[in-house]
């Protein structure tokens, strides 16, 4: 199954002052691969994800996405980021814009589309997440699940090669989680390469090619969902899996 690598993060270290948050992390994804990242709070999952689009500048290491070296100072980071979609736990929709406005901002201001082109692409992206009829609504008029789907539409409208999800469902009421996971499943079926930080074990079991367990800034072990969930090799992994399954 694995094709050629599309995300190659190697030897990533990240310090926040005296805090050593990532301690030499390697994460490589083949095209169309879906990798799940799990681990205790504070283990560095978000920081790692944010290094993959340079929202966080690694202290050392290298990050190459879709052939572009993100840490090379000559790289046009704004251009590179259009190929790397990101979805946040708290949605981060622009509250003063409609759903369509949220989706088309980058299309118009960065991708250089005209308003009508951007509106057409934006409407198509909203339709893909099942919200064609909500284009004119502001985030305040949408449920959490709908907001997160608009946030996904905002990212996929730019036709990224990779999507990063940072706990996309943990701010949602349980009954709204399914709709967001459904959209993520569709994305996966369309062949999107995805890195997902989440504790949705059911989704991981069905959709993930690989599960990565992190603790204290390092990858402790990785493997297929079945391997990590049923027969973890490390005591720390076992303890963590046991903990989240009790919830």
């Amino acid at each position: 199954m694995p094709g050629k690598p599309i995300v190659e993060a190697r030897g990533i270290h990240k310090h926040f002052g005296a805090l050593h948050v990532l301690k030499g992390v390697d994460l490589v994804l083949a095209e169309r691969e879906l990798v799940f990242v799990i681990g205790p709070s504070g283990s560095g999952k978000s920081t790692l994800l944010r290094c993959l689009n340079r929202l966080e500048q690694p202290s050392s290491g290298s990050v190459v996405v879709d052939g572009v070296d993100l840490l090379d100072p000559r790289t046009d980071i704004n251009h590179a980021r259009q190929r790397i979609g990101m979805v946040f736990q708290s949605f981060n929709l622009y509250p003063h814009m409609t759903a369509l406005g949220n989706v088309t901002l980058a299309l118009r201001k960065v991708a250089g589309k005209s308003r009508s082109e951007a509106d057409a692409l934006g409407s198509a992206a909203l339709a893909r997440v099942g919200l064609a009829d909500r284009a004119g609504h502001t985030p305040g008029q949408l449920s959490g699940g709908q907001q997160q789907r608009v946030a996904i539409a905002r990212a996929i409208a730019l036709e990224p090669r990779v999507m990063l999800f940072d706990e996309p469902t943990s701010a949602l009421d349980p009954e709204l989680v399914g709709s967001v996971l459904g959209v993520m499943r569709d994305l996966r079926e369309s062949g999107m390469t995805m890195v997902v930080v989440s504790h949705e074990m059911g989704f991981a079991r069905n959709a993930a090619d690989r599960v990565v367990f992190m603790d204290e800034g390092a990858i402790i072990e990785e493997g297929t969902p079945a391997a990590i969930f049923e027969t973890p090799g490390h005591e720390r992994t076992r303890a963590f899996i046991g903990q989240i399954q009790r919830h």
């Binding site: 689009n53 929202l55 980071i77 704004n78 251009h79 590179a80 980021r81 259009q82 790397i84 979609g85 990101m86 946040f88 708290s90 981060n92 929709l93 622009y94 509250p95 003063h96 901002l105 980058a106 201001k109 960065v110 991708a111 946030a151 905002r154 990212a155 730019l158």
Partner: peptide, 27 residues
Amino acid sequence: VPAGQTEAARSTGVGRLQTMLYVVLPQ
């Protein structure tokens, strides 16, 4: 304005100044 607003815009490739202009300043 929450930092997440800027991060969201920057993650879609919107530049620093345009993020300020279209996302942060109106709020």
